[in-house]
Structure formats: structure tokens, C-alpha cells
């Protein structure tokens, strides 16, 4: 099967800067691959092995996203693509999905597209299903197991809280994968070194044939207007005294609360 995986490079620091346009400043913050994207990558690897397939990885973002693309190569992807261009910046989920879907379509068709459930920074979980819509394929969220039944049928287990639904899905399909549902493969020193030397092709705005008015900032419909502090300061009543006294008070409170 021909498999595509979308990964996002996200800030990991809890102290992200915000610029005057209410955008997160990512390049100065510590960053890494969005955690659940590695769970998505893991299922891609399983499917690649089972079907003797190939994996292409896509990431949209500044050059810093190359780190995630190289990590995926080191884990077992066959090819990585960086999607980068000024016209792509400042978009909402609609614009982001349009650019990703177009780049994937131009290199496709793919049998299966994987994304993480949501990013740890934006966290909307919308981009995956939007790509599926653009490429006229079904999408399955909360995927916790996946297996190829034949050339164009997958058996997918979807977590629904108190259990898993077993689904039979015709390819092509887009699958979103939650954090923690499998144990991601990690690069070894040797595979990472090899991946670090890889040339990663850049898909820029001249290569993505989309009207500039529907992508990036001009195409964004959901606009952040204000960013404010969520912290209301300390409102909790402080327990004071010796540690012995504090411990005794905690014991009392736990007993009262439990009753």
C-alpha cells in the first residue's frame, strides 16, 4: 500500500511567546514532533511491513520542521517532504488542510493517509478530517489498531470509550491516531545519522496550485482576536503551620471530602 503520514513540529515549552499579531512564536521555543503523530507513524510502519508498502511523510511549517521529517526517515519512512512558503503562513485549519491535501494529491494517489488525532499546540483535530473531505475519502478517528484485510480493505479498531468498534473500511481512507495507543519506534543513533544526511525536497508555493485567496492568512476565517492570561491568580486557601500540622489538616480534609 502507498501510505502518507502528516506530522507537525510543535513547541514543547510551556512558555511560548506571542507576537503582536497574536501568533505563537515557535522558532525561539523548544520544539519536537507532535506526540500522537509518532503513534500515527507507528501504525504506518506496521501497515508498510504487512503490505510491503511505502511511506511518504509530509510536514507543513518552517525549516525547523525538518527535524521531525528526519526523525520519521530514521524510524522507517521512505521519503519526507517539507511544505513551506510564506503564502501558507497564518492560515486556519481550512487553509492548512487545502495545502496539505493538494501536496498529497499531487504525489498520490495514496491508499491510506495517517495523521495524529490533534496537535498539542492548536489541538483542533480538524485538519485530518478536512484533508479526507478534500480528497473524497472517509476518515476514522480514535484509531487504536489497524490491519490490512486485502488490497483495498482495512480492519480498523476505533476506541469509543467503553470499548472498540471494529470497522471494515474501503481504501482510500484517512485515519487519525490518538496519543499513547501504541509504542512508537524510536530512531537509533545509526538511523538518525543516516537520516540527518538526507536531502529533503521542499514543496513551495510555486508548486502548490491553489488560489492564494483560500489559503494562508487571506483564506483564514477563524481569527484569534485576543489572547489573555487564563490564570486568575491564587484563590486557594493556603494551609499553614508546621508540616505536621499541615499533614493533619490534609487528613481531615480528605476524610470530610470523601464522606
Amino acid at each position: 500500500m502507498k501510505i502518507a503520514v502528516c506530522v507537525k513540529h510543535v513547541p514543547t515549552s510551556e512558555n511560548v511567546q506571542i507576537d503582536e499579531n497574536n501568533n505563537l512564536v515557535r522558532d525561539t521555543a523548544e520544539s519536537d514532533t507532535n506526540p500522537c503523530d509518532l503513534n500515527a507513524m507507528e501504525f504506518a510502519l506496521q501497515l508498510k511491513q504487512q503490505t510491503e508498502g511505502t511511506i511518504d511523510v509530509y510536514s507543513m511549517g518552517p525549516d525547523i520542521a525538518l527535524a521531525s521529517l528526519k526523525k520519521c526517515l530514521a524510524i522507517g519512512a521512505d521519503q519526507s517532504y517539507l511544505i513551506s512558503g510564506r503564502k501558507f503562513a497564518g492560515g486556519d485549519t481550512l487553509g492548512t488542510a487545502r495545502v496539505l491535501a493538494k501536496a498529497i494529491e499531487d504525489n498520490g494517489p495514496y491508499d491510506v493517509i495517517f495523521t495524529g488525532s490533534e496537535s498539542s499546540d492548536g489541538g483542533t483535530g480538524q485538519v485530518g478530517p478536512m484533508i479526507a473531505e478534500l480528497l473524497s475519502m472517509p476518515d476514522v478517528s480514535e484509531t487504536v489498531a489497524i490491519e490490512a484485510k486485502d488490497e483495498n480493505t482495512l480492519e480498523i479498531r476505533k476506541n469509543v470509550g467503553d470499548g472498540n468498534l471494529v470497522l471494515k473500511v474501503k481504501t482510500p481512507v484517512l485515519v487519525t491516531v490518538p496519543f499513547g495507543c501504541n509504542e512508537p519506534t524510536l530512531p537509533t543513533l545509526r538511523t538518525q545519522r543516516k537520516a540527518n544526511r538526507a536531502e529533503i525536497p521542499v514543496i513551495d508555493e510555486s508548486m502548490v496550485d491553489l488560489d492564494a485567496s483560500i489559503i494562508g492568512k487571506p483564506g483564514a476565517l477563524s481569527i484569534v482576536t485576543t489572547v489573555s492570561s487564563a490564570s486568575a491568580g491564587r484563590t486557594a486557601e493556603a494551609l499553614e503551620g508546621s508540616f505536621e500540622e499541615i499533614a493533619a489538616r490534609i487528613d481531615e480534609l480528605v476524610e470530610e471530602g470523601r464522606a
Binding site: 492548536g122 483535530g125 480538524q126 485530518g128 478530517p129 473531505e133 476518515d139 476565517l221 477563524s222 481569527i223
Partner: peptide, 22 residues
């Protein structure tokens, strides 16, 4: 919910309606 957000992300794209999450 996971299913409703997936459903409406698709609807938002079909209709080009802006969508805010969570």
C-alpha cells in the same frame, strides 16, 4: 466529541465555513 468534530470539520470544508474548536 471525536465524531462530531470530525463530521463538522468535513462540513466546514464542504461549505467553506470558519470553524473554532474546543
Amino acid at each position: 466529541s471525536h465524531t462530531a468534530r470530525s463530521l463538522f470539520a468535513r462540513v466546514a470544508m464542504k461549505k467553506n465555513i470558519g470553524m473554532t474548536a474546543d
